[in-house]
């Protein structure tokens, strides 16, 4: 087996933690954004669409830098965060924030595609049966977009595991604190003699990604069997 240092294990666990936290925290906003884009006839929809997809088009380093400008001590939200006693920059939470922004378009896109396939008549029928808009969203739209939510979440989780550019800027690369799997691989790969450790972590990364994809396929098949 490959020799793993304790910090390597930390990096793997941190990556999983950051990925899971980013995905879960983004879900409510992702659902709201997808729901708005699909079902509302709100005029600002095009702007919202561009805004949601922007992180997909921007280099992650740019996203990271913008986040730094926003959340840093002298950033736009700096005073608010300081007043609330929250310190984000150079903590693992900043890595979560970076993953949330970078992965958000993927989450919304997948949920949106599945929401678009829902027969609108089902929603109208639910309204005539006594469901309010919100109730119809939770009792009809949400269960029927389950596969999209699943697909979006796995995509976003996988994207978070690979997040590098934005993370290194806002969270730094502190072993045991903010060093995620890609950052650890980068460190090993750029230091002399780190090749075998880098290869080992790459293998771990491949295993995790394959596991996520299998899990996603399995759940999707199960939900397809039910619906």
């Amino acid at each position: 087996m490959f020799p793993f240092a304790p910090a390597d294990l930390d990096a793997v666990l941190l990556s999983l933690k950051v990925g899971a936290a980013a995905t879960l925290l983004s879900l409510p906003a992702g659902l709201a954004a997808a729901g708005t884009l699909v079902f509302s006839r709100f005029r600002g929809n095009t702007v919202l669409d561009v805004f949601v997809n922007l992180p997909l088009a921007l280099p992650p380093v740019v996203v990271g830098y913008l986040l730094l400008l926003l959340m840093g001590d002298r950033g736009l939200l700096g005073p608010v965060l300081r007043a609330a006693g929250i310190r984000l920059v150079f903590t693992w939470k900043a890595a979560v924030a970076a993953s949330m922004v970078v992965g958000f378009p993927l989450l919304v896109r997948a949920i949106r595609i599945s929401m678009e396939t829902i027969d609108r008549e089902l929603i109208r029928v639910s309204r005539t049966l006594g469901a309010t808009r919100v109730d119809a969203f939770f009792s009809v739209v949400l269960p029927l977009s389950f596969r999209g939510i699943l697909a979006g979440s796995s995509l976003m989780f996988a994207r978070s595991l690979g997040e590098f550019g934005a993370t290194v800027l806002v969270a730094g690369n502190i072993p045991g604190v903010t060093q995620t799997l890609p950052l650890a691989i980068y460190d090993y790969a750029s230091a002399p003699g780190g090749e075998s450790a880098a290869a080992g972590l790459c293998a771990v990364s491949v295993v995790i990604s394959v596991a996520v994809l299998f899990l996603h396929e399995g759940l999707a098949r199960r939900s397809a069997g039910e619906v």
Binding site: E121, L122, V125, T128, G130, A131, F146, V227
Partner: peptide, 20 residues
């Protein structure tokens, strides 16, 4: 009055049952 408060149900040509 919004549809959910009118209590007027509709049965149309296609039954539109909830598939889930």
């Amino acid at each position: 009055v919004p549809p959910e408060r009118r209590r007027i149900a509709v049965v149309s040509q296609r039954p539109h049952l909830f598939p889930h």
